[in-house]
């Protein structure tokens, strides 16, 4: 069970990194996530059943997520629709798109096709236990994504992203179009989310169009839990704590699922728990800020 928590935590960490990008760096609360996560899952499942190799499926899923993000950003940029509404619009439309991709079905099992994990298991055979192989594989995947993101935020473009969420006027004065940056940022973020969905589908053994329900909330909870564990301003630490937050969040959800019945809790209560976690995080952060800064505005 323990490696299960870690593997799921790592898979969701990829999604949480995407949520972190939009919510924290871009200051663009993006709800597309609830649609782009299952989008990645259904693209992956469809391409696997069509006989594509897993790498192609992952790339397609990432690309699909980027496109979904583009749609949200374009609605926001072109029609001056508030970002929350733009995200909700795309998310809602994606529900139908996802069912279309699954050929008018709501889910697709992946029992008889070769997934990334079957490849990993085949490699691990006679070497190390399969569960451990999966864990090592996902640690590597998440590490690569984390390092790539860290590197990206050190580039000129990455630095401007940092400034955009902080001071949009400064970015405009610099001759950079904030709309273009938002398009790229929201696109990349949803690409990561869809990638996470693609891995989740393979790990669970099926893709389901309802996979994404409330996923943005769990992503946000992961980001906030991470901010609890580590206080830092360095980008390497920022991405690390998102990953740790995602694992911690999964652990809490596991506890809720397995031991919750002692206090009469059912798995249906988990979304309530996730919401309360976020509210508690916000309350504590608020309290700390008021105390820490002696009442001055932050």
């Amino acid at each position: 069970m323990l490696e299960g928590i870690f593997v799921e935590g790592l898979i969701y960490a990829i999604m949480a990194l995407g949520v972190f990008f939009t919510f924290r760096i871009l200051d663009f609360p993006d709800l597309t996530v609830d649609g782009s996560f299952p989008l990645g899952a259904v693209i992956m499942a469809t391409s696997l059943t069509a006989g594509q190799n897993p790498l192609a499926g992952l790339l397609l899923a990432f690309g699909g997520g980027v496109l979904a993000g583009f749609v949200t950003a374009a609605i926001h940029n072109r029609l001056k629709v508030p970002h929350l509404l733009a995200g909700i619009l795309t998310m809602t439309m994606l529900y139908s798109v996802n069912i279309r991709i699954l050929d008018n079905r709501a889910n697709l099992p992946l029992l008889r096709v070769d997934t990334v994990l079957t490849h990993v298991a085949a490699w691990a055979e006679n070497r190390i236990p399969v569960e451990w192989a999966a864990l090592i594989f996902f640690i590597l995947v998440v590490l690569i994504i984390k390092l790539a993101l860290d590197l990206f935020f050190h580039t000129d473009m990455g630095l401007v992203f940092g400034a955009l969420g902080n001071n949009e006027q400064m970015v405009r004065v610099q001759g950079v179009n904030p709309a273009t940056l938002k398009l790229i940022g929201v696109g990349l973020s949803n690409g990561l989310v869809a990638l996470s969905g693609a891995f989740a589908a393979q790990y669970q053994g099926f893709a389901d169009v309802n996979l994404g329900q409330g996923i943005v909330v769990s992503g946000l909870a992961s980001v906030m839990l991470g901010e609890f564990i580590i206080k830092s301003n360095r980008i390497g630490m920022l991405t690390l704590r998102v990953i740790l937050g995602a694992i911690l969040f999964k652990a809490i959800m596991y506890l809720g699922r397995f031991y919750g019945y002692y206090i009469n809790m059912t798995p249906n209560d988990l979304k309530l728990i996730a919401g309360i976690l976020i509210i508690a995080s916000l309350a504590v952060t608020n309290y700390r800020r008021i105390r820490g800064k002696g009442g001055t505005a932050a």
Partner: peptide
Amino acid sequence: LAGTASNMTLEDNMMITCKKGFKWPVISL
């Protein structure tokens, strides 16, 4: 406060503003 990004370092701020126009994902700092 309007001319700088407060939660970024001095050198990052200077890197962002030292050249006008679109920024590509290359590391110049």
